[in-house]
Amino acid sequence: MMPTNKVFAAYEKLLAHSTRMLAFARKEEWSRLAEEESAYAVEVEALKGLGTPEEYDKNSLRRKAGLLERILEQDAETRRHLEKHRTEIGDLMDDSRRRRDLSRAYQTAGIDGASGRQGLQ
């Protein structure tokens, strides 16, 4: 069993990481977001290692619930930004595949892709 103050300090650290992750997602700073996610994961493991407090009073329960609610809200928004980014990357990859396939089709048909004319064979 662990004192409540250490558990709350750990939740506050998670909230700080979550806040930075959301800021990076909003700015589309994906590499910095990934770094912050790694630090967040380390803090989650540290929190797990603390164990559970012997008991929470009503104020402590409200405080914990408030911290968790803010973390979860920020996580949801961060995920929405990531999903949008993933969709954009998928669209770019699909476009690249279509261009590649079209280029291959023209090459197979002996058509110069730049001019659209049949090449000499």
Rank of each mutant, 00 (worst) to 15 (best):
P3A: 09
P3N: 11
N5S: 13
K6M: 10
K6D: 06
V7G: 01
Y11I: 04
E12S: 06
E12T: 05
E12V: 02
K13Q: 12
L14T: 00
L15R: 07
H17R: 14
H17V: 04
S18Q: 07
R20M: 11
M21T: 00
L22I: 01
R26Y: 04
E28R: 15
W30S: 05
S31T: 08
R32Q: 15
R32H: 11
L33R: 02
A34D: 12
E36V: 02
E36K: 00
E36R: 00
E36H: 01
E37C: 02
S38F: 08
A39Y: 06
Y40S: 03
Y40D: 01
A41L: 11
V42C: 03
V42R: 10
V42Y: 04
V44N: 02
V44Q: 10
E45L: 12
A46H: 05
A46R: 14
L47E: 04
L50K: 01
L50E: 01
L50S: 01
G51H: 01
T52H: 10
E54N: 07
E55H: 12
E55C: 10
E55T: 13
E55P: 00
Y56D: 02
D57E: 04
K58T: 15
N59L: 15
R62L: 14
R63Y: 06
L67Y: 12
L67D: 08
L67V: 06
E69S: 13
E69C: 10
R70C: 03
I71W: 05
I71D: 00
L72P: 01
A76M: 08
T78E: 03
R79Y: 08
R79H: 10
H81D: 03
H81L: 09
H81M: 09
L82M: 12
K84P: 05
K84Y: 07
R86P: 02
R86E: 12
R86W: 06
E88S: 14
G90W: 00
D91L: 14
D94H: 12
D95K: 14
D95C: 05
S96Y: 12
S96I: 13
R97W: 06
R97G: 01
R98K: 10
R99G: 01
R99N: 03
L102T: 13
S103M: 10
S103G: 05
R104S: 06
A105L: 06
T108S: 08
T108K: 13
I111H: 00
D112R: 08
D112A: 09
D112S: 08
A114F: 11
A114W: 05
A114H: 07
Q118Y: 12
Q118D: 07
G119N: 11
G119D: 04
G119I: 14
